[in-house]
Every structure is written in structure tokens, then in C-alpha cells.
Design a protein around this nucleic acid. Structure first.
Lengths: 225, 225
DNA sequence: TTAATTTTTCATTAAGTCTTTAGATTCTTA
DNA sequence: TAAGAATCTAAAGACTTAATGAAAAATTAA
């Protein structure tokens, strides 16, 4: 089910919980690292650079909140997802957690199903950058299937055309500079003349038959439908 | 406290909850739009393009889950944060919510403190992308989209005009010397006559239709609305 | 290999932007 | 208030940039 190859670090002092969560995560295709206290969590976090860190609040050596604070101070963990486990349904602690820079928390007792859902959901948001299917008004762009439809009709685009359209449509309204386009669609090393972009834009406009790409002279192009 | 100018749409059929949440959010400096059922939520979402949408699961017309599904199909709401409110501590529903593409959920009864914490926390993740958008009274200058709007109407500026306006509007009230303007908009090497600036200023004044650029004779120009 | 398609280049044309010019106007100050 | 300086205005021409048509080069499929 999952092509994701994501690393998750779980820190909790209760071996049972560690075991259950690990089992479920591995089942979903995640790589799992475990730690039994705050210091071990810190150390393993630095060594393995996980994508998500799950911290129990109550742990020996250092609490989850302390670990979180220490991690957030380091640039390497600025964007790492952090999730708290808390036995206390204590409101104060929950708030403290979120304000320290955690991304979410789950109250014990934990249901494995809810846990997995939450983890998946956190990642889903994170990887949003490259969502597979764009739908804008009547236009459907499916990156996986490499298909474009407009108002039900299939439109066959060549590779470069597709990539260009996908790039523009992924942020409707935003202007992409010619340079940005060259870098992303052609790659930084490839050198092509300026007119090349224009010609591809023209092809897309022709094939779509709708006026959805706007020229911003001297700047670039933007998509809007 | 907050420089954030974020829009939040709350949809719930219970006026009390709407009221309490709105009060707290406004207090934190957010802009709040409300809706009383699923259809109204959809409609207002499209119209106002909020940054965060809070959906009650149980609503007339359409449930929160349905609204969420419909929104997620549209590219414009690909990155919009969605948060569920649920009275059911029912595990199944929670999972369904997350799998539909919601970013989080909160169980009723809701503690305002926890709610605000969660909202702030959701946004914190986002803030990196912060687009360079200036908003001054009715004037919106969006550098990414290369768009200027005044009181809802689009105003099309050429590149130099846009840069010039953006420069002035980025520090309302401050006077920019003609030299500063030349350096920033034209670059240090380029040599153009003095009248060139005037002419561009005039164009901007014409196109905007509002008197927002003031001449400071012998010195330069300043923006004020 | 040939044929078909895709990608790029080039020359030409079209569209728009930027700058200059010059006379009118406004402002400042002696 | 009159002279000088600075800015406004409108229009023309210079200059940039993009759209277009056609064809060569490169790639892929048959």
C-alpha cells in the first residue's frame, strides 16, 4: 500500500506500548526506531534523522517536552514532525506541548487504529507538495496516470508539455519566472533558448483550447482557470 | 500580538459554539467567517478562500466529512488546513475524517484554550511559505501572483510599475529618495533620465485611481493610503 | 530502418513596455 | 510676486519581449 520509506522514532518507557506501536507502523511500511528515555531519544534522533518523532511526555532522564524543546533549537529538526503521547488528559500539559513546537498529541490509552491514522495524516499534509491529481474547475491533471482531461475530454500532452502545465497548475495564480520554469522542467544544466518555453506554452494553449495560461511580460507565466 | 492576517472559516450548526470559537479566534487576531451548514460552508469557502476551515461533523445539508471531500477535490483547497469538530468520540468517524484529508480533529466538548492552541500549532507549520503579500486598506499587492487589487478590482501593472509600487508600499509613510528608487528598481548601472520615474509614478496613480502616492518635492515619493 | 512524434531553433510579426521629449503646471524662495 | 526649480502631462519613438509559422534536429515507436 505504501511506497513511503519514512523513518519514525518512538520514545516511550513502557515496552508494551513501544511494541504495539512499532508493530503497527512497520505493518504500514514505515521504518521504526525506538528509544526508552529522553536522552536516548535525543541521541537516536540526531543519528537517524527521522521524519517523525513520537515522544511520550512522561519519560525518565528527560520528558518529552524537554526533548522537543532541545530538538526544535537545532536547525536540522526545524521541520521534523513531532507527536506527543500523553497519559495526562491534563489540559495544561497538552497546551504546553503544542506551544513547545509539537505538531500534535495523542492521549493514552492509545488505539492503534487512531494512532496510525494520525501518523498517516501528518505525513499526508507534509508531502502535499507533490499531490498526484490536480482538479481545477473542469480540468483534471493526473500525474501518476499522466492524463489530462478538460470537461470530460481527454487531452494528450507530450512529456515536457505535461510537466510544464503541471508546474503552473500546481499553484494557480502564482507567477512562475522563466528561470524557475527552466530549472524545474528542463533542469539547471540543460541549456535551451528562451523561445523554447514560449513554444511549449503555445502547444498547451492550443491543445487545451481554453485560455488558462496568462503571460506576464518580462516576468513569466501563470495558470488561472 | 499577531501580525498574521489569517482567515478562518468555522462551520457549525450550534450558534453558541460558533460564538465562543469566533470570539476566541478574533481575540487572537484572526479573521473569522462563519457558516451554519454544509452548503453555506462550501459556498463561503469558495468565496473567501480561508487559510483554515473548521468543520463540525454533524451539520445540516452536508456533513463536515462531505464538505471536506468536496473541497479536497479542488486544487484551490489543496493546501488549505481543515480541522474537524466532532461530538462523537466514535473512533470510526475520527479515522474517516483523517482519511478524507482533514488535518486534525478536536472532540467536543471543546476547551477554548486547547482549541486556540491547536489552531496556532497548525498554522505554525505553515508559516514558512508565507507569501510576500502586502495588504493596506483595500489594496492588495501579491508579489508571487504578481497581482494588484484595489477594493476587489484587479489592476494590471507592468513590471517596472509593479516593482515601484511594491517598493513604496512596503514602507507606507516613508519617503523614498529618487536615488533609492533608481537603484532598486532600475539597478545601479542603468542610467535613465529623471523624468522616467515621474512617468511611472503617473502611470501607477492613473491605474490605481486613488491618491496614494505623494510627491515630496526635491526629495522623492512616499506611499500612504 | 522508416515513420511518427516530440523537442528545439530560427526568422518574422505582433504586442506591449520603457524612455525621452517638450510644453504646461506647480511649488519654492528671494 | 517673479524667477527658477521641480514635477506633471501627453504623445511619439525606441526598445523588449512574446506569439507565430515553419522547419530542422532529436527522440521514440513501429
Amino acid at each position: 500500500m505504501e511506497g513511503k520509506n519514512r523513518k519514525i522514532l518512538i520514545a516511550d518507557d513502557e515496552p508494551d506500548i513501544l511494541e504495539i506501536l512499532k508493530y503497527n507502523l512497520v505493518n504500514e511500511g514505515y521504518q521504526v526506531i525506538t528509544a526508552r528515555d529522553g536522552d536516548e531519544a535525543l541521541e537516536k534522533a540526531k543519528k537517524t534523522q527521522p521524519d517523525l518523532i513520537v515522544l511520550d511526555i512522561m519519560m525518565p532522564k528527560k520528558t518529552g517536552v524537554e526533548v522537543c524543546e532541545l530538538l526544535r533549537m537545532q536547525a536540522a529538526f526545524k521541520d521534523t514532525l513531532i507527536l506527543f503521547l500523553t497519559a495526562l488528559s491534563d489540559e495544561g500539559t497538552q497546551i504546553k506541548g503544542l506551544e513547545t513546537g509539537a505538531d500534535d498529541y495523542i492521549s493514552k490509552p492509545i488505539s492503534p487504529k487512531v494512532f496510525i491514522s494520525k501518523v498517516n495524516s501528518l505525513f499526508r499534509r507534509w508531502q502535499k507538495e507533490d499531490a498526484a491529481v490536480l482538479t481545477i474547475n473542469g480540468l483534471i491533471i493526473d500525474q501518476q496516470k499522466f492524463i489530462v482531461q478538460y470537461e470530460g475530454k481527454d487531452i494528450s500532452l507530450a512529456k515536457k508539455e505535461f510537466e510544464l502545465l503541471y508546474m503552473l497548475a500546481s499553484k494557480p495564480g502564482r507567477v512562475f519566472l522563466r528561470n524557475e520554469i527552466l530549472n524545474r522542467v528542463w533542469g539547471a544544466e540543460v541549456i535551451v533558448g528562451d523561445r523554447t518555453i514560449d513554444v511549449h506554452i503555445r502547444k498547451i494553449r492550443q491543445k487545451l483550447g481554453v485560455d488558462c495560461i496568462t503571460t506576464v511580460k518580462g516576468v513569466g507565466y501563470k495558470f488561472e482557470l
